Amino acid sequence: MATDLVRLRRLRAAKDAMDRDWSSPLDLATLAAHAGYSPYHFVRAFHAAYGQTPMQYLSRRRVERAEDLLRTADLSITEICHVVGFSSLGSFSSLFKKQTGLTPTAYRELHLRRGAALVPGCYALLWAGGFPHAPTAEQRNPEEAP
């Protein structure tokens, strides 16, 4: 029993990292390190606990975030694709359709017809954490870092 709780706590640490850092580039080795497992053992343990692989879970979370942005933000679909952590518009679009049953364009049009107002893209990017790979102030000006 205690072993199961320790295992779930470790897997939850990786799941929390995916929930928190969904827009960042996350690979299997990084996620496995959060749980303290080898990548292959992590995939098996995560699947046993949550019924899907870690990358399936991360992709699902990213599509959910994209749904939010498509309903609310005046950003292009390509911008949304990159903000939520996808590098390929084709992969994003096909996964989005598989998960929601609609293309990103159709999804947005459906919600706009319902009277949704779009937030300007600059505000949406601030809300979404900005550009996920933008350098920090310390990276831009290392001599000014504390």
Rank of each mutant, 00 (worst) to 15 (best):
P104W: 09
G129C: 01
L118V: 07
V63F: 08
T136A: 03
T72H: 11
A106R: 15
L102K: 12
E109H: 13
L118N: 04
T136V: 04
R62Y: 07
R108C: 07
N141W: 14
R71F: 03
L31H: 03
R20A: 05
D68R: 07
L8V: 04
A32R: 02
A35D: 03
L125W: 00
Y107I: 14
R62H: 06
L28W: 08
L126R: 10
C122N: 09
R60N: 13
L95E: 15
P104R: 06
V119P: 00
D19W: 09
Q99V: 07
D27V: 04
L112E: 13
A137S: 09
I80F: 02
V63Q: 06
M55C: 05
Y37T: 00
A45T: 05
P120C: 02
E67C: 13
T53Y: 10
Y50A: 07
L110N: 14
H82D: 02
T78L: 10
F46T: 04
P104D: 09
K15M: 14
K97N: 03
H82Y: 10
A137W: 12
H82V: 06
A35M: 03
A124F: 02
E67P: 00
E67D: 03
P120Q: 11
A14H: 09
G90S: 12
P135L: 11
W127L: 12
G90V: 13
A33D: 12
S87L: 05
V43L: 07
L75Q: 03
R61D: 01
G115R: 10
Y40K: 11
N141C: 08
S87E: 13
M1H: 11
A134V: 10
F42A: 02
P25T: 13
P104A: 06
S76Y: 04
R140H: 04
R10M: 09
F42M: 02
R20H: 10
L5W: 08
Q139M: 09
Y37I: 01
H34P: 00
H111A: 04
G115N: 06
G130A: 00
A145F: 12
R113P: 01
D21T: 12
R60S: 15
D27C: 00
C81R: 08
L70Y: 08
V43M: 12
A45M: 08
R62N: 07
H111Q: 07
Q99Y: 11
L8D: 14
Q56A: 15
D4W: 09
L126F: 06
G90C: 02
Y50I: 08
D19T: 12
E143Q: 14
F92E: 02
L118Q: 10
F42T: 06
V43P: 00
L31G: 01
P25C: 08
I80E: 04
E143S: 14
A117T: 15
A106K: 14
R108D: 09
R114G: 03
A29I: 11
F92A: 01
L112V: 10
S87I: 07
H82C: 00
M55N: 08
I80S: 00
A29E: 15
S23C: 13
A117E: 15
L26S: 05
A128H: 04
L58Q: 11
I77H: 05
G129A: 06
S91G: 10
D74M: 00
P54E: 14
V119C: 07
T105R: 15
A66Q: 08
L70H: 04
G115L: 11
R114C: 01
R65V: 05
L102Y: 15
A29P: 01
T136I: 05
A73V: 05
G101C: 04
S87H: 10
W22K: 01
F42K: 01
Y50R: 09
I80Q: 00
A134W: 09
